[in-house]
Nucleic acid binder design. Sequence first.
DNA 1: GTCCATGCAAACGATTTGCATGCGT
DNA 2: ACGCATGCAAATCGTTTGCATGGAC
Lengths: 138, 138
Amino acid sequence: MLTKNDRLGKKLKDRGLKATPQRLILLNIIEECGHVDIEFLYKRLKETIPTISISTVYNNVKKLQDAGIIKEVSISAFKPLYETNISEHIHLVCIKCRKIIDFYVDKEEIKKFFSSITKKEILSFEITLFYLCEECKD
Amino acid sequence: MLTKNDRLGKKLKDRGLKATPQRLILLNIIEECGHVDIEFLYKRLKETIPTISISTVYNNVKKLQDAGIIKEVSISAFKPLYETNISEHIHLVCIKCRKIIDFYVDKEEIKKFFSSITKKEILSFEITLFYLCEECKD
DNA sequence: GTCCATGCAAACGATTTGCATGCGT
DNA sequence: ACGCATGCAAATCGTTTGCATGGAC
């Protein structure tokens, strides 16, 4: 039975990165909170490690990105966000509360749909859909 | 018969913005070049108006965005880009030469497709597709 | 002992703001 | 004459870098 920290530590070591407390907590925050920006990460990290430096946050986010452990999300009117979800999915954004949720799709189905529309071989995609979530419909 | 400047000037005045030379040329550059960043705009504007200030570029880009005349494009690994195209379309990005082209779609068809997949009423979308363009296939 | 990550401070780049000037109406 | 846009400089914000320290292997 692997603890959460063991699992996150393994994730890091598998890519040749040391499993420091800073990195474990950072990964944990991203996993739990979904789509977070640098500022949010820094604030949350400081709760556990009050001495953490903002440069450590930036440096680690970049390292984890390069290692393919986290991914940057670009959505207009949002700051760059980070997520641990590597598998292909699309984002659903509520136009009112701005909450972002992941929606898993059949990657091949999406690629096929757009290949047929564009008459080009689509290799990958970034898709954000805007809607009004249940809570905001009231 | 409207000249290009008349047309761009009207676009500005219709939204309550003055049609200054800086704004007319800025709009003209975005229209001609498609997806441009601030730096590119500034360099190109200086060719015609050598005294133009970078703050004028920033301020005008923001004003035109607020007025709905130009739109910001967010794509991972790209700086924020601006386009005059307001009508809904998707972006095709070559993974090799990074050239971006617009592809016009039937908005309703796209919304219907994703509404049926997600079981939610999709109101709008931001879609970027990655592919290998003809020139780069060699 | 070596390597790498950290925290701090300084540097840097991008963007915003305040203000004096000047143009267009 | 008035209001807004401009250009400049300074201020600010976000991000990166250099470096000394310290911990893990």
